[in-house]
Nucleic acid binder design. Structure first.
Length: 950
RNA sequence: GGGCGCGUAGCUCAGUGGGAGAGCACCUCGUUGACAUCGAGGGGGUCGCAAGUUCAAUCCUUGCCGCGCCCA
C-alpha cells in the first residue's frame, strides 16, 4: 500500500481517535507492563463550557505526560470529568431563560434545577468532544461529574464530618455579597479593580455644641494650625454608609483628638430631630496621616470597620437589602434611631439579632439604590453646611459661584467586583456557612514544606505558603439553586441537624418535621475532593487504593488558591495523604500582543479553529514547544502553528522517502550491531535524542522535549537522509540492507518519541508504513547513548558535514552557479582528514556538488580557499575567480579570526586565569586558540598566493 | 505597601560563569526523484543601565530605569 502524498489531518484525526477509543487504548492500565502507577486527575472543565486556549495547553501537557508513561508501561490513569460550576452555570441558564422572557424567580427551585439539568444534557458533551479532538487520552469510561451521585455522596460525607468536628460552622459574618446574583461569594471570587472614585470630607458636630482646641503640628513638632472646633472631620468614599455608623475612631496615640475621646458626635444626616449620636473611640486601625485621621466605623459595610467594631463592641447596623438597595423593611426610622441612641448612650444592651432587625435608613432614603442614596446624602449634608469647605481654585469674583466649595478629592479607589457578575460587590452581614480553613491549612502547608508535594517551578510554593499563612475562614454557602444543597435541616425552632440524608437528620431530630437549608455549597467545595471522589471515595474501591495519591496535577497559577490548596487540605484530612506528588504550574496563553484573551477584548484565538486549519498535532506541538518552565505567559501565534504543521509534513516526507527506497522494518535489526559509519552515527544521535527527551519530560521541560525532537528530525532529514542515498541506490549487499533497516529504525524512533506530543500523524505514519498494533501502545525505548553512541563515527560525520558546509558557503558567497560541478583539493592535510575524505568522498562529492575530491601537496593557482579541521580546502576556479572579491572575502574571515585569537591569547596570558581556572578549561581554550591559529595560517597563505597571482 | 516575574536579532522568545541561539520576517541562489507546507547560503545583537563579586559576568549580588501579574 503506497503512502498518501500528504497527511490529511481533518479526516485522519477523528478516524484515528475513534480507533483508539474502540480498542480501549485509553483505559486505566492499558499497555501496562509493570505495577507502578501514573495518575493524573484532569482539572475538571465547566460542564457547559467550551474549549479555550488555556484548556488546550493544560490538557496537551497532561496528555503528553500520560501518553509517555503509558508507552513506558506504567499502570496509567488519566481521570476525566466535568464540574457543575454553580454560579457560572446558573448564570448561563438564567440568561437563556431571560431570552425566552422567563425569570428564574418566576419558577420553582425544582423546575429551575430541572432546566439546568436539561441544559447540561444538551451542552455537557461539548467540552468532552472538544478534548477528544485535541487527542486527549483520558479514560472516558471513568468520566465523572461533580454533581453525580457518587460525588454528591462524597460532598455530604465531608460536610457532615467537618460539621461534627466543628470545622464547619454557621455564623453571621461580613461576607462579599454579589447584588446581581444575590449570593455570598468567597474572597477569591472578588476582583479588586482600580476605579476612579471620590473622597468626601464631612463634619460630625460634637454633641451639645461642645468645642475643643484642635492643634496640628508638623514633623518637628511646630504648631502649624490651632483653632477651636465644634466638630470632628471625617473623610469617606462611601457617604451612604454613614447612616450605619456606630462610632468614630481615631488612633490611640493621636493627640489632636485626645480632648474628645469618649465624647459623642452627631452623624450629620437624617431627620434633624432624630440625629444619632455616636461615640468617639480609639483603636490602632485609623492612620493618623490619612485624611483627618478620624474614621467613621460602619461595621456592617466595610471589612476594616467590621474588625474595629468587633474589637470595641460597636453594633453592626445593616443598611442594604440583597440587591444592595437601601433597606425598606422594619420599623420606622424614628423608632430604631431611638434604640440606637440608647445603645450609644450605654443605656441599653444589644445582641446580634436585635441589631440585625433594626433599620437605620431614614424613611426618605428607603428603597433607593445605594448610589442614589449617596447623592442624596451628599446633597443634604452640603446643604446643611456640614461639608468641609475649601477655597475654589477656579473662583471668579465676577461670577455668581461661591468662593468656597465642598472638599471632594478625586482619587482612584480599589473597587471590588464579582468575577462572574462584574457588578460591584458589597460587604454584607449575613448568615453563612464557613470552613475553618486555618485548621485545615496547617497540614496542607506542612506537606509542601516537607516536600511531600512539590510545586514545579518551585517559586510557586512561596505564593502557596503566603496564602495559607494568611488564610481566612472559607465562606462555602451560596444563595443559589444549582449546586450541592447544604446537608443541614432545621426544625420549627431553628435547631439544626446535620446529616448525609434527610432521613438521618429526622432521626437525629427525633422524628420532627424538618426543612433543609436552602443554600448550596461553593463549587470549589466539591472540586476540593476531586482527586479521591473521582476514584470512588467514600467507597474503598480498588481504584482508590491503586491510583491515590496521584502523581502530578497540571494546572494554572490562577487556581492555586481556589483549588490546589483546598485539594491539599481535603486530601490530607480525609485520606491522610497529599493528593499529588507534584503540582506543575503551566503558563497562561495570551494573544500575540501579550494580552490576556477575553471575549470582551475580542482577541480570543479559538484552539479548534487552529485544529481545523492545521491539525491537532500542530496545535499540540506549538503549545508544548512554547511551554517554558517558569514562564508566566506563552503567546499563541498562528505562524508558530503553521511551522509546527510543516514539521509534521517534514516527518511525513521522510517516511515517504523510506518507502520509495524500499526500506522495510527488519525485526532482526539490532542498532548496536550496525557497522556502516553513517548508520552508527545516526543511531548514536538517536540515542542521545532519546536521553534528552526523557530528561526533559522527567523535569517537565516541555519546550526542551519538543525542541530537541524538532532539531533531531531536521538534522536527520538534512544529513542522514542525504547520506543514505548513495547507499540506498548503490549496489545490493549487506551495507545497503543495513542502511535500509537503519533508515526505517531511525524514522521509527522519531515517530515513537514524538507520539506523546503529536499522536495523530505519528500513528497514521505507523499505520501507513505497515507498523503492527497501535503506535500509542508501542514500548518506549530504553537504549542509551552509552551503548549506541560511537564517538569515532560522530567525529567523522561531523567533520564531513563541516566540510560540505564550508564548500557550500564558499560557493554561494562566490556566486559559483548552483548547478556547476567543481573540483576540490585538500592540502596541508593531516592523516585523519585524508582518511575521512577517502571514506566519505562519495557523500562529499554529492552534497557539495564536486566532480573531484582529492588530496594534494600544492594548491593550484587561482583557488578559492577555506579551511576545515586538519586541512586546507582548495577549490580551483581560476577561470571564474574574481581575485578582488576572493581577497576581500579572505580578509574578512581573517579579521574575524584575528579578533578571536587576540581574545584567546589575552586570556591565556592572564596569570590569574592560568592559576585559578580549571585545567580542563585552560586546555579547552588552548585548543581553541590552536585551531583558530591554524585556520588563520591557512587563510593567510591563501591571501599570499592570491597576491602573488594578482 | 508586600510578593512574583520579565527586559537577549526587526518580531516572538530559548539559553549559559569561559566560543551569543531558534522560529518567524528579510536578502541572494535554487525545482538535484522524500519534501516549495521545500532546499542551500547570508545579513542582523554594546544580551535594559550602573556598580560589585570573580582569573573570567549576558548569566551571580546590589541599586536604578522600564514593563507585567498577584495580594493588601
Amino acid at each position: 500500500m503506497a503512502m498518501d502524498k500528504t497527511f490529511d489531518a481533518a479526516t485522519a484525526e477523528p478516524r484515528i481517535y475513534a480507533e483508539w477509543e474502540a480498542q480501549g487504548c485509553f483505559a486505566a492500565g492499558a499497555n501496562k507492563t509493570h505495577d507502578e502507577t501514573f495518575t493524573i486527575v484532569i482539572p475538571p472543565p465547566n460542564v457547559t463550557g467550551s474549549l479555550h486556549m488555556g484548556h488546550a495547553l493544560n490538557n496537551t501537557l497532561q496528555d503528553i505526560l500520560v501518553r509517555w508513561h503509558r508507552m513506558r508501561g506504567f499502570d496509567t490513569l488519566w481521570q476525566p470529568g466535568t464540574d457543575h460550576a454553580g454560579i457560572a452555570t446558573q448564570m448561563v441558564v438564567e440568561r437563556r431563560l431571560n431570552a425566552q422572557g422567563v425569570k428564574r424567580t418566576d419558577m420553582s427551585r425544582e423546575d429551575f434545577v430541572a432546566k439546568v439539568w436539561e441544559w447540561k444534557a444538551e451542552s455537557g458533551g461539548t467540552i468532552v468532544n472538544q478534548l477528544k479532538r485535541l487527542g486527549a487520552s483520558c479514560d472516558w469510561s471513568r468520566e465523572r461529574f461533580t454533581m453525580d451521585e457518587g460525588l454528591s455522596d462524597a460532598v455530604r460525607k465531608v460536610f457532615v464530618e467537618l460539621y461534627d468536628k466543628g470545622l464547619i460552622y454557621k455564623g453571621k459574618r461580613l461576607v462579599n455579597w454579589d447584588p446581581h446574583f444575590e449570593t455570598a461569594i468567597s474572597d477569591l471570587e472578588v476582583e479588586n479593580i482600580e476605579t476612579p472614585g471620590h473622597m468626601w470630607h464631612f463634619k460630625y458636630p460634637l454633641a451639645g455644641g461642645e468645642t475643643y482646641e484642635y492643634v496640628e503640628k508638623d514633623a518637628d513638632g511646630a504648631v502649624i494650625l490651632r483653632e477651636t472646633r465644634d466638630y470632628i472631620s471625617i473623610a469617606t468614599t462611601r457617604p451612604e454608609t454613614m447612616l450605619g455608623d456606630g462610632a468614630v475612631a481615631v488612633h490611640t496615640d493621636d493627640e489632636r483628638y485626645a480632648p474628645i475621646i469618649g465624647k459623642l458626635c452627631e452623624i450629620p444626616v437624617g431627620p434633624k430631630e432624630h440625629r444619632r449620636l455616636i461615640p468617639i473611640i480609639t483603636d490602632d486601625y485609623p492612620d493618623p496621616d490619612f485624611g483627618s485621621g478620624a474614621v467613621k466605623i460602619t461595621g456592617a459595610h466595610d471589612f476594616n470597620d467590621y474588625m474595629v467594631a468587633k474589637r470595641n463592641n460597636i453594633p453592626l447596623y445593616a443598611l442594604m437589602d440583597t440587591k444592595a438597595a437601601m433597606r425598606a423593611d422594619g420599623r420606622p426610622y424614628a423608632e430604631d434611631a431611638a434604640i440606637a441612641q440608647a445603645i450609644a448612650n450605654g443605656e441599653r444592651d444589644f445582641d446580634e439579632a436585635m441589631v440585625a432587625a433594626m433599620n437605620l435608613v431614614p424613611d426618605e432614603y428607603r428603597g433607593l439604590d445605594r448610589l442614589e442614596a449617596r447623592a442624596r446624602v451628599i446633597a443634604d449634608i452640603t446643604g446643611e453646611g456640614l461639608a468641609v469647605m475649601v477655597p475654589d481654585p477656579d473662583y471668579d469674583p465676577e461670577g455668581d459661584a461661591p468662593e468656597r466649595i465642598p472638599l471632594v478629592e478625586s482619587k482612584p479607589i480599589m473597587q471590588p467586583y464579582g468575577d462572574r457578575s462584574k457588578v460591584v460587590i458589597e460587604p454584607m452581614l449575613t448568615d453563612q456557612w464557613f470552613v475553618d480553613a486555618e485548621t485545615l491549612a496547617k497540614p496542607a502547608r506542612e506537606a509542601v514544606a516537607k516536600g511531600d508535594t512539590a510545586f514545579v517551578p518551585k517559586n510557586w510554593e512561596k505564593t502557596y505558603f503566603n496564602w495559607l499563612d494568611n488564610i481566612e475562614p472559607w465562606c462555602i454557602s451560596r444563595q443559589l439553586w444549582w449546586g450541592h444543597q447544604v446537608p443541614v435541616w432545621y426544625d420549627a425552632d431553628e435547631n439544626a441537624y446535620c446529616a448525609a440524608t434527610e432521613a438521618e437528620a429526622r432521626a437525629l431530630a427525633g422524628g420532627k418535621t424538618l426543612t433543609q437549608d436552602p443554600d448550596v455549597l461553593d463549587t470549589w467545595f466539591s472540586s476540593a475532593l476531586w482527586p479521591f471522589s473521582t476514584l470512588g471515595w467514600p467507597e474503598e474501591t480498588p481504584e482508590l487504593a491503586r491510583y491515590y495519591k496521584t502523581d502530578v496535577l497540571v494546572t494554572g497559577f490562577d487556581i492555586i488558591f481556589f483549588w490546589v490548596a483546598r485539594m491539599m487540605m481535603m486530601g490530607l484530612h480525609f485520606k491522610d495523604e497529599v493528593p499529588f506528588y507534584s503540582v506543575y504550574i503551566n503558563s497562561i496563553v495570551v494573544d500575540g500582543n501579550g494580552e490576556k484573551m477575553s471575549k470582551s477584548k475580542g482577541n480570543v484565538i479559538d484552539p479548534l479553529g487552529l485544529v481545523d486549519q492545521y491539525g491537532a498535532d500542530a496545535l499540540r506541538y506549538t503549545l508544548a514547544s512554547q511551554e517554558v518552565q517558569g514562564r508566566r505567559q506563552s503567546r499563541m501565534s498562528e505562524s508558530a502553528v503553521e511551522a509546527a504543521r510543516n514539521f509534521g509534513t517534514k516527518l511525513w516526507n521522510a517516511a515517504r522517502f523510506a518507502e520509495f527506497n524500499g526500506c522495510e522494518r527488519d525485526p532482526a535489526f539490532d542498532p548496536a550491531k550496525a557497522t556502516e559509519t553513517v548508520n552508527r552515527w545516526i543511531i548514536g544521535e538517536t540515542a542521545k535524542t532519546l536521553e534528552a527527551t526523557d530528561a526533559a519530560l522527567t523535569a517537565y521541560r516541555f519546550n526542551d522535549a519538543a525542541g530537541g525532537l524538532y532539531q533531531h528530525v531536521y538534522f536527520l532529514c538534512d544529513w542522514y537522509v542525504e547520506f543514505s542515498k548513495p547507499l540506498l541506490t548503490g549496489a545490493d549487499g549487506p551495507a545497503k540492507d543495513e542502511t535500509k533497516a537503519t533508515v526505517v529504525w531511525a524514522i521509527d524512533q522519531c515517530l515513537i518519541m514524538l507520539s506523546p506530543i503529536m499522536p495523530f500523524i505519528t500513528e497514521e505514519l505507523w499505520r501507513q508504513t505497515g507498523g503492527t498494533g497501535m503506535l500509542m501502545h508501542h514500548d518506549w525505548p530504553t537504549y542509551g547513548s552509552d551503548t549506541l553512541a560511537d564517538a569515532g563515527a560522530e567525529a567523522e560525520m561531523r567533520w564531513t558535514i563541516s566540510l560540505i558546509e564550508a564548500i557550500r558557503s564558499v560557493r554561494a558567497e562566490m556566486n559559483v552557479p548552483a548547478g556547476a560541478k567543481i573540483d576540490m583539493l585538500l592540502t596541508d592535510f593531516e592523516y585523519e582528514a585524508a582518511q575521512r575524505l577517502l571514506r566519505q568522498g562519495a557523500l562529499i562529492r554529492r552534497l557539495a556538488r564536486l566532480s573531484e575530491a582529492a588530496v594534494g601537496n600544492e594548491a593550484p593557482a587561482g583557488s578559492i580557499v577555506t579551511a576545515v579541521e586538519g586541512a586546507t580546502v582548495n577549490l580551483p576556479l581560476a577561470d571564474i575567480i574574481d581575485v578582488k572579491a576572493e581577497g576581500a572575502r579572505l580578509r574578512k574571515k581573517l579579521d574575524k579570526l584575528s579578533k578571536e585569537t587576540g581574545g584567546l591569547e589575552k586570556k591565556l596570558s592572564n596569570p590569574g586565569f592560568l592559576a585559578k581556572a580549571p585545567a580542563e578549561e585552560v586546555e579547552k581554550q588552548r585548543a581553541r586558540l590552536d585551531a583558530a591559529t591554524e585556520e588563520k595560517a591557512k587563510l593567510a597563505a591563501a591571501v599570499a598566493r592570491l597576491e602573488a597571482m594578482g
